[in-house]
């Protein structure tokens, strides 16, 4: 009788060990699977997003999307090309270069903060910083550099920061965006940006996708809406409506106001994640900022 009981106990113990082992293997497998899945899902998003515009505007070359609405509307493009004969952002680039080279009070410069001395690196922003677990945009990195060197941060939407960003973008012309989503944490930020892009907000109940996907190329009042593909590539921009330079987050705030949604803080988490999502979707397009817009 005792022998039977012992055998039963040993058997149930062995079964328990087997079950635990299988469970552990399943958990490990799930971990690998999710790691593989998020990269596949991002790639699927990129394919779907870019295919949407290829189908919508079948005559437009992929590389043209860096030019915003001027890629899809011939009349606007003609005016824009005339404006580009005397680019209104040139002064901003010159001012940005002067600021870039001016030493901080500790003798260091912006070049000390960035890879390759800050030249030709626009396409590497935004990126996901795994140590800080957040998205770093070029404008945020510029202010981080200032603060690390004992300087006050600059205002994020226009002025000196937009000029610095314009100069740094100008040194990167022709380099292609290759924004990656390298980890599960990065995927979280990417997903938040994606959610923002497709969520309807404001009194008019519009999402970014409503204007820049669904009705891209059509008129909203007097303006033709630009395709979302390539949105970040030309920023910062000189906008005729502003009569000055402005950053991408200034434009985000303007878009939100247009649909009567209260704008969120420039370089806050929400807008940075949105820029991250849009930059991932624009993979393969060239940097052509600074540029000019209506």
């Amino acid at each position: 009788m005792r022998l039977v009981k012992r055998t039963l106990k040993m058997k149930s113990g062995a079964i328990l060990v087997c079950l635990l082992t299988i469970n552990c293997m399943a958990i490990a497998d799930t971990g690998n699977k999710s790691d593989l899945d998020f990269k596949a899902m991002v790639q699927q998003d990129i394919n779907d997003f870019q295919s949407f515009f290829k189908k919508r505007f079948s005559q437009v070359e992929f590389s043209e999307y860096k030019n915003g609405v001027y890629a899809i509307d011939a009349a606007s493009r003609e005016q824009w090309l005339e404006m580009e004969d005397f680019p209104p952002y040139e002064f901003a680039v010159d001012e940005g270069e002067a600021l870039f080279e001016e030493p901080f009070s500790n003798g260091k410069t912006y070049a000390d903060c960035f890879a390759n001395g800050g030249e030709g690196i626009r396409q590497n922003y935004p990126y996901f910083d795994s140590k800080k677990s957040e998205v770093i945009t070029l404008e945020l990195a510029i202010n981080n550099c200032r603060q690390a060197n004992g300087e006050k941060p600059l205002a994020y939407k226009k002025g000196a920061l937009a000029n610095l960003s314009a100069y740094m973008a100008s040194t990167s012309a022709g380099n292609s965006f290759a924004t990656e989503v390298p980890s599960v944490a990065a995927y979280q930020s990417y997903s938040e940006g994606k959610e923002f892009f497709y969520s309807k907000r404001g009194q008019l109940n519009f999402s970014c996708a409503d204007c820049h996907m669904r009705v891209a190329g059509q008129k909203l009042r007097a303006d033709i809406t630009s395709p979302a593909l390539g949105h970040p590539t030309g920023f910062p921009v000189y906008r005729a409506k502003w009569e000055e330079m402005g950053t991408l987050h200034r434009r985000y705030a303007g878009c939100n106001k247009n649909i009567r949604a209260k704008p969120l803080p420039a370089q806050g988490r929400a807008y940075r994640n949105l820029e991250y999502f849009q930059s991932v979707m624009s993979q393969g397009l060239e940097v052509n900022g600074p540029s000019s817009r209506k």
Binding site: D48, F49, F52, E195, Y198, S199, K200, R201, Q203, N205, S207, A209, D210, M213, R214
Partner: peptide, 23 residues
């Protein structure tokens, strides 16, 4: 009325934002 509608919009977006993907 507006405040309630904006909160309804926020709550709806949290669970239904994917319905806005035009793909």
């Amino acid at each position: 009325n507006e405040a309630e509608k904006s909160l309804i919009q926020a709550n709806y977006a949290e669970t239904h934002w994917q319905a806005g993907i035009p793909l």
